[in-house]
């Protein structure tokens, strides 16, 4: 019997969920239903009819001779150059056991994760605009480049050791270095901190064109990048995927039609789905990306954005 089967037959087990547990969970979910916004899906023909009706109303109200202009959400979006935040610091003299950083971002927080080749000695470097949440209630003071810092040790009896050191590196720039196992050591963290320099790093996944006013909402682990406009529906997502999907029409939710298009001189596929565009393309360097964009953008705009996506191959 192999270890997978042993886990199934002799691994930790637990009793089945009680009726009460299921009822409570279902009640919580049901309360969420009531509060949820409803996405209206209108068949294309019907949607066009509504737009015509709206336009006719404008004409009727404003007098003959005024241009019929789509209202509110149907207003066309303009594409402008956009910039992707850069990680503000570089860890010079990265220990050989650590891989190059992988970046994640949310407004106010930028994280570089240095995975260890041993899988247990990872280092996290967080840069934020406010004091990071401590991982323990007690700390000990140290000094980093003349600035006061605190080292917190996570309480994890019998488990792997984890230490986090945080300090305000420059006014408004808080840095937290977290070390696991062999890096969970005061001296090791202080040595790493000595090698931090102000040298911005480009993140590997970038897009240089976006609707006017849209901002980077987050990126995750160098593989997902999300930009957002002013409303939840105004979301554009780029994701690096392992390979092309041969059957997008089947697998994209609500897919209606597929077009062969060209992105960066290579064939790409553009799906029109019920409530989004979905484009899959191979970018320079060979990475395959999926781009999801709202239908407010035209097909040409989606392709134009895709042309401006780049993925820097990962360093060794």
């Amino acid at each position: 019997m192999n270890e997978i089967n042993l886990l199934r037959t002799h691994g930790p087990d637990a009793p089945e969920a009680s009726t009460e547990t299921l009822r409570l969970a279902k009640d919580r979910l049901a309360r969420e239903f009531a509060a949820a916004p409803v996405r209206r899906t209108v068949p294309p023909l019907r949607r066009r009819t509504l737009l015509v009706a709206a336009g006719a109303t404008v004409v009727a109200g404003a007098g003959v001779g005024l241009a019929v202009r789509p209202l509110g959400p149907a207003e066309p979006l303009t594409l402008v150059a956009t910039t992707i935040p850069e990680f503000p610091l570089t860890l010079r003299s990265r220990p050989a056991t650590l891989s190059p950083p992988r970046y994640s971002y949310a407004p106010g927080q930028f994280l570089a994760v240095f995975l260890s080749r041993s899988t247990t000695d990872d280092v996290y470097l967080l840069v934020g605009d406010s004091r990071p949440a401590p991982i323990a209630t007690t700390s000990r003071p140290v000094t980093v480049a003349g600035r006061p810092a605190e080292i917190y040790e996570e309480s994890n009896p019998g488990g792997p050791r984890r230490l986090a050191m945080s300090w305000e590196r420059t006014p408004g720039q808080w840095v937290s270095l977290t070390g696991h196992r062999r890096f969970a050591d005061d001296a090791a963290l202080l040595r790493l901190a000595e090698h931090l320099v102000d040298e911005p790093q480009q993140v590997p996944l970038r897009v240089r064109l976006a609707p006017r006013g849209w901002r980077v909402a987050m990126f995750k682990d160098d593989t997902i990048l999300t930009l957002q406009g002013g409303s939840p529906d105004e979301t554009l997502t780029v994701q690096v995927v392992p390979r092309r999907d041969p059957d997008l029409l089947l697998n994209v939710t609500g897919a209606r039609e597929e077009r062969r298009v060209t992105v960066g001189g290579r064939e790409a596929r553009l799906i029109r789905a019920d409530d989004m565009w979905f484009l899959q393309a191979e970018v320079t360097g060979g990475a395959v990306v999926n781009l999801q964009a709202p239908l407010r953008l035209s097909a040409g705009q989606v392709i134009a954005i895709a042309e401006q996506i780049s993925v820097t191959p990962r360093r060794a």
Binding site: K26, A30, F33, A34, A36, V38, R39, D275
Partner: peptide
């Protein structure tokens, strides 16, 4: 459920 949340049930 996108149009009618309770259909998620």
């Amino acid at each position: 459920s996108l149009a009618e949340p309770k259909r998620f049930g």
